[in-house]
C-alpha cells in the first residue's frame, strides 16, 4: 500500500470518527431542546481541533514509517486519482447543499440548514478519501 493510500485511509477514519462525535453532540443537544440545535461554536472548535491534531499525528507517523516515499512528489497516476476523487466528491457536496436548501425551503429551519451543509462538507471530504482508495485499488 502506497504512502498516499495509507494517508487516505487515516484521514478518512479520522473524519468519520470526528464527524460521528460532532453529530452525536448535536443530536443529543437537539433531543434535550426538543428542536434542532443551533450551531454550537464549542462543538465546531472541538471537531476542528480533533481533526487537526489527529491528522498531524497520523501523517507524521505514516511519514516516518514510509521513509523516502513520503517525500516523493505526486506522480501522474496519483495526480489523476486525486483529480478524479476531488471531482466525484464535488457531486456529494452539491447533493448535500441542494438537500439542505430544499429542506430550508420546506421547513424554514436555518439551524437544520447549517447542520446539513456542514454534514455535506464532512461527507464530501470522507467521500473524497473513499474515492481515492477505490481508485488506488481498482485503477484510474
Amino acid at each position: 500500500m502506497s504512502f498516499r493510500e495509507k494517508t487516505a485511509w487515516g484521514m478518512g477514519l479520522i473524519l468519520i470518527v470526528a464527524g460521528a462525535w460532532y453529530f452525536s453532540k448535536i443530536v443529543s443537544v437537539s433531543s434535550a431542546l426538543g428542536h434542532t440545535s443551533p450551531p454550537d461554536l464549542r462543538f465546531f472548535i472541538g471537531y476542528v481541533t480533533l481533526v487537526v491534531i489527529t491528522s498531524i499525528i497520523v501523517n507524521v507517523v505514516l511519514a516516518i514509517m514510509s521513509g523516502q516515499e513520503a517525500n516523493a512528489p505526486v506522480d501522474e497516476r496519483e495526480k489523476a486519482i486525486l483529480d478524479k476523487a476531488g471531482h466525484w466528491s464535488g457531486y456529494v457536496l452539491a447533493v448535500g447543499a441542494f438537500g439542505g436548501l430544499w429542506h430550508f425551503g420546506w421547513l424554514g429551519d436555518g439551524n437544520l440548514l447549517f447542520h446539513i451543509i456542514f454534514g455535506a462538507l464532512m461527507l464530501s471530504q470522507i467521500a473524497e478519501y473513499a474515492f481515492q482508495i477505490f481508485l488506488y485499488r481498482r485503477g484510474v
Binding site: 502506497s2 493510500e5 516515499e69 506522480d75 501522474e76 497516476r77 496519483e78 485503477g139 484510474v140
Partner: peptide, 22 residues
Amino acid sequence: IGVTRQTVIAIEQGRYSPSLES
C-alpha cells in the same frame, strides 16, 4: 521514469495506462 513503485505495479497489472511521455 519518475513515478512511484505503485504506479509501475499498476502499469504491469494493466490497471493504469501511462502517459505518452512515461
